[in-house]
């Protein structure tokens, strides 16, 4: 089942900005990342999903219900990007208020079961010790945790998070990543709009790339990264001599040579090379080749910022006018 399904969704602001003709499907139970540079239309798209913006044209469903209808938001948890909660309330009061907005009756929000639920949710996001403090005294990171608690309070089937970790410290980001993995384990679909590519790379099963309001690519993350023609691989070598590059160029052959790059070399013969390889076997072939040429192989492996490379390539190709 598709939790989010949009068809030719368009929303512009006096003909500028926004998103245009976005058709996107998000399957149930996955963590989905929405990527794109600033001004790509990500926030507009997310706001349409959350019922905050009305599309100019196109249609879509969220959890099987038409976009914009209150029913579509019944099992939706949403953390906005630029938000604030009532400064004058405590987290417990904020969550009770949101529970009322979510359809709970007053007596339900006063029940012991609900109080336990609030306590558990605050504990989940690490705010158990601030439950009775006024939100006005919270740091940005604590407010973000409270926003996450509000999004998770009513057992959502879909959680839309707009930059959920932008104000968090490394420990906070690690905790949120762990939490999102746990949610996926419970069958909750997470739709993540973030600029933190390492989060996307670690968490997301699928992703989409928006640029200039248009959807350029979407699908499983590993397919997207490989769709640009392979993986970046790095090699740390010893015993590098001035004539080594010429010898390697002859040995590698014309197919691989354009993808091989000498990044750095020092006076005592240590060198860093990168290569764009189609698969692990090709990387293994290069390792064997280096050793046959008398080099010492200290380290070899795929570059961790593959998503970043893919992101930049997508953005640059669009700037150059070559749609993917």
């Amino acid at each position: 089942m598709m939790v989010i399904d949009t068809e030719q969704l368009t929303k512009t602001y006096n003909g500028c900005g926004g998103c245009r003709g976005v058709s996107l499907q998000v399957p149930e139970g996955c963590i989905f990342g929405l990527l794109g540079p600033n001004g790509a239309g990500k926030s507009t798209f997310v706001k349409i999903l959350a019922g905050l913006h009305r599309p100019d044209s196109g249609w879509g469903t969220v959890l099987g219900k038409p976009l914009g209808r209150p029913e579509a938001r019944r099992k939706l948890g949403y953390l906005p990007e630029l938000f604030r909660y009532q400064d004058w309330l405590t987290p417990v009061e904020v969550l009770s208020f949101h529970a009322r907005l979510g359809g709970l009756r007053p007596q339900e929000t006063r029940s012991p079961a609900f109080r336990n639920r609030v306590r558990d949710t605050l504990e989940l996001v690490g705010l158990q010790n601030a439950a009775d403090r006024r939100v006005g005294g919270f740091s940005k990171g604590m407010q973000q945790r409270l926003g996450l608690a509000a999004a998770l309070l009513l057992d959502p089937a879909l959680v839309i998070l707009d930059e959920p970790a932008s104000a968090l410290d490394p420990v906070g980001r690690y905790e949120i990543r762990s939490l999102l993995k746990r949610l996926r384990g419970q069958g909750v679909t997470v739709f993540l709009n973030t600029h933190l590519l390492e989060d996307v790379e670690e968490l997301c099963d699928e992703a989409a790339f928006l640029y200039g309001g248009e959807l350029l690519a979407s699908g499983p993350l590993h397919q997207l990264i490989n769709s640009t023609g392979g993986t970046n691989w790095r090699f740390r070598l010893g015993g590098w001599l001035p004539e080594t590059w010429a010898e390697l160029s002859n040995a590698v052959g014309d197919t691989l040579l354009p993808h091989l790059r000498l990044v750095e070399v020092d006076d005592i013969g240590y060198a860093l090379l990168t290569a764009r390889v189609t698969d692990r076997e090709q990387a293994g072939y290069l390792c064997a080749l280096f050793m046959r040429n008398g080099l010492t192989l200290y380290e070899s492996g795929p570059e961790r910022n593959n998503l970043e490379a893919w992101f930049l390539q997508m953005a640059q190709s669009r700037q150059g006018g070559n749609a993917q």
Partner: peptide, 18 residues
């Protein structure tokens, strides 16, 4: 402008009722 409405309006309640 201050962001209070964003989380509120995303709840399953009609705007007119809100």
């Amino acid at each position: 402008e201050n962001g209070l409405l964003l989380a509120v309006a995303a709840r399953p309640i009609s705007r007119w009722r809100l």
